[in-house]
Design a binder for these strands. Structure first.
Length: 515
RNA sequence: CGGGGAGUAGCGCAGCCUGGUAGCGCAUCUGCUUUGGGAGCAGAGGGUCGCAAGUUCGAAUCUUGUCUCCCCGACCA
């Protein structure tokens, strides 16, 4: 009943149409927009600001692990790329290829690649950099003393995707890719799992996005990897989103690129490599984890602005005193620290009614919004709404008036509270939607029945088939539009039998629809 | 890449079938009134109808091609 009175900020709700809602958040929160180039997007200041926050906090964690940043070329010689067969097979179908280095007039007012300027060897636009970094590693590594070699780069990559969705799957996207080389499997696996744990804790602590970390089944491995691990997040429509991956590459790329070192016995030995990455896809995860029918709710740790102050300007001579009051408040708040950084606070002085400008910030998901009028200024008050508690029971916006000193004293705690509330809400939703009671195929089909709104995930035990037996399982799942996400680390040992093979279950897996 | 849908003002849409040089709502601008919680009234500005060819005296409208977006599928670190 109270619901009916609420006039939400978005034109479509999650319940009405989740896919359209997702796009509405992106455009209404001004995260990104169409670029006119297929599958590529313009990332706008608020969206890019979130990415910059992710970069800053992730980069610190990467460096803390002793990994150094480098930059490798956007263009990869075709011959480099062709060196690893599985890798080629995995990416060949989605490559952008540069074949010419000059344009000439076509005689009809347009331009065409100059046939005279064809490249001797085509260059591929990197879809990932294992091959080119492998070539560098081969040059950089001679001795066991050169290991481990720990590098990372922040870059854009291109994959010519058939079907794109903003942030989730774009032809060009931004990411970091860590690449490391180690003396042996044990050392490389430690690094692979370190990166995985780094992503897990980052998603939970920084993005307030609960995830489940674990190894992927062999059919879901990265092309060329021996083992692939992922963090999987549950979106509000119940689908799984792979939000980060970490790969143990064995000696696959070491063989292809010739990454060898002289070991302590003087023998030439292949290095073991890893790679791991997270991308702008994480922003899609934040949207579908924390967004509501009024737009995004940006976790305070990644919010480009954590507090926005909206003065209720009235185009009269009281405005100046009001702005003075607001600016003093802004300075006071900006001097506070939260999450080991200064509080990010913006005084929005643009002309226009505060009540009107408010909605733009609601949609962007600023954690705390302040509206301050002349009466507040005179009485030393502020009026505050928490973005994660936007509405009152009566359907009105939940602004709470309070003394300025009290708010300033509580502001840091409020930001921390928003961060943890978002995490708690998402975790509760996720946990409530993991079904552990399914033990056969009929139960699986029933759980994911077509008419069921937003099913979650099924966790069950299976016999971990490989090869053709696994292919058969994958086919069964595909018929239900399902995929195996991963084997949760620390999952309880399963009992009973595998619903696919009838053999004893040996491992616990998560099954879900996925992005 | 296959099937379906769609591109007309910043956003959302109507007009298209039955060709006659463009309209509505929101937003924007101006004025007046209002003003502590998503203001009202009046007026105004803004569009080579995605792009390109074709048919026609005349094309947003018909034909063909092409680009982009959305949905479903296939594919997918």
């Amino acid at each position: 009943m109270t619901q009916a009175k609420i006039r939400h900020a978005l034109p479509v709700t999650r319940e009405e149409d989740f896919a359209q809602w997702y796009q509405a958040v992106i455009s209404e929160a001004e995260l990104a927009e169409e670029s006119g180039v297929r599958g590529c997007m313009v990332i706008k200041p608020w969206g890019y600001g979130i990415w910059e926050r992710i970069q800053k906090l992730m980069d610190a964690r990467i460096k803390e692990a002793g990994v150094e940043n480098c930059y490798f070329p956007l263009f990869i010689p075709l011959s480099y790329f062709a060196k690893e067969a599985d890798h080629v097979e995995g990416f060949a179908k989605e490559m952008a290829v540069v074949t010419h280095h000059r344009l000439i007039a076509d005689g009809k007012g347009g331009l065409i690649p100059d046939p005279e300027a064809k490249l001797e060897e085509p260059l591929v636009v990197r879809p990932t950099s294992e091959t080119v970094i492998g070539a560098a590693m081969a040059r950089w590594i001679q001795s066991w003393r050169d290991l481990p070699l720990l590098t990372n780069q922040w870059a854009n990559v291109v994959r010519w995707e058939m079907r794109t969705r903003m942030f989730l799957r774009t032809s060009e996207f931004l990411w970091q890719e860590g690449h490391t080389a180690h003396a042996d499997e044990a050392d490389a696996m430690v690094e692979t799992l370190r990166a995985l744990e780094m992503y897990r804790s980052f998603a939970e602590d920084v993005l307030a996005m609960p995830v489940i970390a674990g190894p992927k089944p062999e059919n879901e491995r990265f092309p060329g990897a021996v083992e692939t691990f992922s963090i999987e997040a549950m979106m509000q429509d119940g689908k799984a989103l792979q939000a980060g991956t970490s790969h143990y590459l064995g000696t696959t790329f070491a063989e292809a690129a010739g990454i060898r070192y002289q070991d302590k016995e003087g023998q030439q030995t292949l290095a073991h490599t890893t790679s791991w990455g997270v991308s702008t896809r994480m922003i899609g995860g934040v949207i579908m984890t924390h967004g509501d029918d009024d737009g995004l709710r940006t976790p305070p740790q990644v919010a480009p602005q954590q507090i926005v102050i909206l003065p209720m300007l009235r185009d009269n001579d009281e405005d100046e005193a009001l702005l003075t009051y607001c600016d003093a408040l802004r300075k006071e708040l900006a001097s506070l620290s939260v999450f080991d950084e200064r509080v990010r606070v913006l005084l929005d002085k643009r002309p226009g009614k505060a009540t009107q400008k408010r909605w733009a910030w609601v949609k962007k998901g600023v954690p705390l919004i302040l509206e301050i009028g002349g009466r507040d200024a005179a009485g030393g008050q502020v009026s505050v709404v928490r973005r994660d508690r936007l509405w009152r029971e009566d359907g009105k916006v939940n602004f709470v008036g309070q003394p300025r000193e009290a708010f300033v004293a509580a502001a840091v705690g409020e930001l921390e509270a928003v961060q943890s509330a978002l995490h708690a809400e998402a975790t509760a939703r996720r946990d409530a939607q993991i079904e552990t009671g399914v033990s056969d195929l009929a139960g699986l089909a029933a759980y994911f029945a077509e008419d069921r709104r937003f099913p979650g995930w099924v966790q069950l035990g299976w016999s971990r088939p490989t090869g053709p037996a696994l292919d058969a399982v994958v086919e069964q799942l595909k018929a239900l539009k399902l995929t195996i996400r991963n084997t949760p680390l620390n999952a309880p040992a399963p009992g009973g039998t595998c619903p696919f093979t009838g053999e004893p279950a040996v491992e616990t897996i998560l099954i879900a629809r996925s992005y």
